[in-house]
Nucleic acid binder design. Structure first.
Lengths: 245, 245
DNA sequence: TGAAACTTAATCAAAGTCGAGCACAACTGA
DNA sequence: TCAGTTGTGCTCGACTTTGATTAAGTTTCA
């Protein structure tokens, strides 16, 4: 006998190969009827984990649902730590800082000085939690919370950012193409970042080297518009020249 | 004969393998009836250690155990759980719910149905985190975060509430005097609650019995203006009469 | 286009599981 | 001793899950 959630996990594993899997195949491999597989898929679709297609299903790999944030937190932690440390060095007393909801930016927090009268504005729930633990004055945008990513988006979030005059902004995105375009899978989050750009004097892209060369559907700007690009390694030669200006 | 605690530990050990275990199997290995196992599981679920599934149970992964930690510090968890369960019973499909940042209201969340299209609006960061874990659609007020309490206050928070039409609101406060005045130590939070009152059709005070008779400096209203007052015990006679109306 | 092949949702019955309530025994404290 | 309490098992009606069946819908391909 197998429990429902075990089937869920197996189905997810089967779909992990990025290819659609047929109801028939799942039914065969799980030793349950197709009706049961369909009911499972229906439940999983409701939770936004899979998308059903005629005859089968595929994994939802779009916006933020693909890899939960807490998973990403563990990737490249070393790189992000190095970047976080560099970033924190740019912060001065009494600064007002914007930090987005990315996991890279999250790693800046532990390096922030604790008693220097900072104010941090963020749209990330876990970022806010970490700031609270360090007793740093925090403003949170609020808004609609994205499932699995614990970040806030939407008009309400923007309306707070629009009132802010920040000294410095730390953010990240999913990918940065070779030619310097910053891209992401979430349009809503990207739009919010663009609003943040307009309200921060100094914009700092935190770019773990693993992101270089990757490209996603939404472009939120180019590195030319940034004031700094921090990476745990040397940046590509061509970027360095561009950033000189 | 075996003590309850011993069974709890054995059950936890069985669940440690990361796989669900059936009630039948536990019953067999512990030499007790399935009814007893179910009662044990019920108790353990209340404490948030295991999650029951149809036919068995799984261990609750402790990834975000930091959340309930501060909640657990203060006693009365059991009382709050009872109240939380009662509260969740008032919720219908598709409801829009306001939940404040209090720890009592926090305990409502685990009792909320998971797939019923709810929308929850809250000013509590940890409340939002718990909602996210349950994949419930969540709006967060944002605003200025109060140190050590992880709740949001201020004009920005109010501005979101003002746009909401909620079916029901769950909240709590520090103390409720014998004569039915709800009081708290935080004026800012109390003001936000008053705004919430104006935007919820049904206002439900979650009042653990330990709060009755206590009084703090700021009064945010009286129980007469509430639609329900939930307590883990019987309410005082005089209150019951007042609430009849 | 239209028919064949296939997939799906709805419905039903059977098996399994659950919660509430009762009975009983062991224990507690007067 | 006795009434009250607690923990356990049992029973039974209610609920859930599952696979089979069937009608309706979708795709394919000539």
């Amino acid at each position: 006998m197998m429990f429902e959630i075990e089937r869920f996990e197996q189905i997810l594993a089967m779909l992990g190969g990025d290819r659609p899997v047929s109801v028939r195949e799942m039914s065969g491999r799980l030793f349950v009827s197709e009706a049961t597989v369909r009911r499972d898929l229906e439940a999983m679709e409701k939770r936004g984990v899979v998308r059903r297609i005629y005859g089968g299903a595929v994994l939802v790999r779009q916006t933020n649902r693909d890899v939960p944030l807490y998973m990403r937190e563990n990737e490249m932690t070393e790189a992000k730590n190095i970047i976080g440390k560099k970033a924190a060095e740019l912060v001065a007393e009494n600064n007002v800082i914007i930090i987005d909801a990315s996991s890279t930016a999250y790693h800046v927090i532990r390096h922030l000085p604790e008693n220097s009268n900072l104010v941090v504005v963020t749209n990330g729930l876990k970022v806010a939690l970490a700031l609270g633990e360090r007793h740093i004055k925090t403003l949170v945008t609020g808004g609609s919370m994205i499932d699995n990513s614990y970040s806030f988006i939407g008009r309400h979030a923007e309306s707070l950012i629009e009132k802010i005059n920040a000294d410095i902004m730390f953010f990240s995105c999913r990918g940065v193409s070779q030619d310097g375009r910053m891209t992401d899978t979430s349009m809503e989050e990207s739009l919010l970042r663009q609003t943040m750009f307009a309200h921060a004097k100094r914009k700092v892209l935190l770019c773990a080297s693993s992101k270089i060369g990757k490209e996603y559907f939404f472009t939120l700007g180019t590195i030319d518009d940034m004031d700094d690009v921090l990476c745990e390694k040397e940046l590509p030669e061509s970027w360095q020249r561009r950033l000189q200006k």
